[in-house]
Design a protein around this nucleic acid. Sequence first.
DNA 1: CTGAAAGCGCTTACAG
DNA 2: CTGAAAGCGCTTACAG
Lengths: 338, 338
Amino acid sequence: MTRRTTAQDVADLAGVSRSAVSLVLNGRADGNISRAKQEAVRSAAEQLRYTPDAVALSLRSQRSKTIGVLFWSNHSHIPVALLGAIHRSASAAGYLLLTVDALERPWQVGALLDRRVDGFVVVAPELLDVPLPESVAAVPTVMVNCLDPSLTASSLVPDELGAGASAAQHLLDAGHRELAVLAGTGGLASERRVEGASGAVQAAGLPEPLVLRAGHAVADGYGGARRLLTSARSPSAIVCTHERLALGAHLAAADLGLRIPADLSLVSLDDGENLAGQLVPPLDLVERPDAVIGAHALELLVDQLRHGRSVVRRLTFVCPVRPGASVAPPRLRALDAS
Amino acid sequence: MTRRTTAQDVADLAGVSRSAVSLVLNGRADGNISRAKQEAVRSAAEQLRYTPDAVALSLRSQRSKTIGVLFWSNHSHIPVALLGAIHRSASAAGYLLLTVDALERPWQVGALLDRRVDGFVVVAPELLDVPLPESVAAVPTVMVNCLDPSLTASSLVPDELGAGASAAQHLLDAGHRELAVLAGTGGLASERRVEGASGAVQAAGLPEPLVLRAGHAVADGYGGARRLLTSARSPSAIVCTHERLALGAHLAAADLGLRIPADLSLVSLDDGENLAGQLVPPLDLVERPDAVIGAHALELLVDQLRHGRSVVRRLTFVCPVRPGASVAPPRLRALDAS
DNA sequence: CTGAAAGCGCTTACAG
DNA sequence: CTGAAAGCGCTTACAG
């Protein structure tokens, strides 16, 4: 392993002092260093492929150009688009990311602080209440997909209530009147989505929809949908609060010989797994705008890093409907019965 | 933002010199510092919650206790178990992980080097040839799920050939004679899995199985399976080289009114998405031992970091069969025809 | 047994 | 216009 080239090496080659190298390479040379020497430094640096040692830079500047990502995960799924956007924006601003599973290994937060991360972004795979540790709150922090009850850090979350409402409204718009909601158990996201969907149905002058809290796994969706679809008054359309539930419902419908969307309409809320929208037929989705949220979160954090502490905000992001091929008008059962 | 407490603060409180603090806290005090002062230092450190500044430590020791993870991703899926194991093992050895998307942002490799990462682990979501950049190879590196053609770094990969063979053998053992392989397009993993499956079938004295190269998406699996199952001589069992293909095949079977496993047996190879094993019925899987590979990779790297460069190795890991409920003996079509 | 000094690589006032 | 010095926080020989 060869020694890294240092500013001294460049200075030696260019025939100037270490400080001159620093000034030139940091664009503060004009009026200080002769143009000839500037050129010498630049070409020496290029020739030696010199890049300053970031560790030394950090010690000197007390800023590491590093952001800690605290992944607050209660289950195993990683929202690709969200992390992708965070990485992309961080990179664009010149930051590197140190990622840690804060639930499984909370002590690593201390290790990040020792490494003098400039800030934190707390990321949950799904809307969560996260009590922010004091040590974290001491550094600029933004929260993505999660909320700090004590309001010490800004948070960026999808409008889960609105998303639930949009999903239901999407089905109402298609003419459905017999809706059911297949939901996860526990979790802020599930509850808000259910609330939103239920609210939209009632706002349309219909009775409260049937809500079945099944769980989060594919099998839960399968079992739940089966129960709904084989019940006395089976719904013509189902809102699924999570992608994997929707997949389960999709499988259950197929097993029962129900065609989507001819016999059953399905709308799923999006969890960033890129799954429900890939099925055959692809499901109509209410998208979680992960890319937007991730990019915005980093923008907010970097701005805080540059201009100091700003006011704590809670930003909510609209979840747009992405049409698929799983929604159609309901069969005219009312007419059959008349 | 309050100032971090430094070794000097501890020294002041304990009434000793900075060096004494360092010696005591690094366990090199015996024979140098009186037991009384040792105690004083320890209690002062505890009282001030002192932990050494990792940046200063890095500059001093020329080791950052940080490992760079180069994610070599051509598509968007993240193998959770693999990354989880890597994080866990790294943490256990006292390392933090700096993750970077090396395909999308190759220049960040330089940024990691500037930050003096002690080593690299190159991770691909699926078996890949990765030509290792010189700058990376200059630092201890292990490759996970990918191979460096020039053999400059050790690599740890699943036995894809064996996995394909196991999948086919699993179906042969159940009595199937009419197998088809639904495969991804391009990619080392697909090819090796196909080769393995095909080899096992031929080793059983049967003619080469039908291989359909469909793609990687759910819809590809759906379309491919549909073609296979509606062809003149439809197979009694299908090996899917990827989870999402298997999901597509599952959906296609349901649409065609084929029950799994009564009418069709399905085996999928595992890509770490935790998907095929969750379906209803759960598919029989040939598992990729991601947790084992990840843990082993870090063990190898940390060992290299501690004891210097070791010999370059290619380690191959067996993929065990995990039974599900998607394989049954074939319908006795031969008897029907006789 | 303990403290002062050197040095990791950098930048930024500060003399000349 | 340029070089020598200080200092970020740490550890490790090295004097006393």
